[in-house]
């Protein structure tokens, strides 16, 4: 079957089996291997991309269901010459060890900082109407992204740094 996707601003028509996930479409059909396959079950967050601006696990998306949608991957938010604020902060703060989870972490954090700006609460927000970025809030809001090297403290530092830059 055929599905049309806009990925990082470019329109693509892909011909695929009904079983194709968005993750496999991105990596194998569109040659965008920045998005990583970790668990393939929505538990690790390595495959996080933005669909219509919202962070999702691309491993739990059927490509067939995303006809007409806009997808943003790690390749779409910056380049080695022009890093996004979060990409810069991850480099600056050394927010990784092996780096495999990093694209997912950065895509997830990109959406998370927007959710904060939009006033979205989390389970650990004392006041559902006035959440502020703290270590506890970052840990809760980023819990869908695992880092098996356990670089969490530096990932939080990087996100906090990017949040300051964006202010």
């Amino acid at each position: 079957m055929k599905t049309t996707l806009t990925v990082n601003g470019r329109s693509h028509e892909v011909d695929h089996d009904t079983r194709r996930t968005l993750l496999d479409t991105l990596r194998d059909d569109l040659d965008l291997p920045g998005t990583k396959k970790g668990c393939d079950h929505g538990q690790c967050g390595a495959c996080t991309v933005l669909v219509n601006g919202q962070r999702v696990n691309s491993c739990l998306c059927l490509t067939a269901m995303h006809d007409g949608d806009e997808v943003t991957t790690i390749e779409g938010i910056g380049s080695p010459e022009r890093l996004s604020a979060l990409q810069k902060a991850f480099v600056e703060k050394d927010g990784y060890q092996c780096g495999y989870c990093t694209p997912g972490q950065i895509m997830s954090a990109t959406a998370m900082l927007k959710e904060m700006r939009d006033g979205a609460p989390s389970y650990v927000s004392d006041d559902l109407d006035a959440a502020e970025l703290s270590d506890a809030e970052m840990a809760e809001r980023m819990s869908g992204n695992l880092c098996r090297c356990s670089a969490y403290p530096l990932i939080r530092e990087a996100i906090a740094m990017a949040a300051e830059v964006e202010k």
């Binding site: 919202q54 962070r55 696990n57 739990l60 869908g144 992204n145």
Partner: peptide
């Protein structure tokens, strides 16, 4: 609170 206690932000978006 209950919804936010469940799953991850990525899952809750879908």
């Amino acid at each position: 609170r209950a919804i936010l206690a469940g799953a991850s932000a990525q899952i809750r978006n879908k």
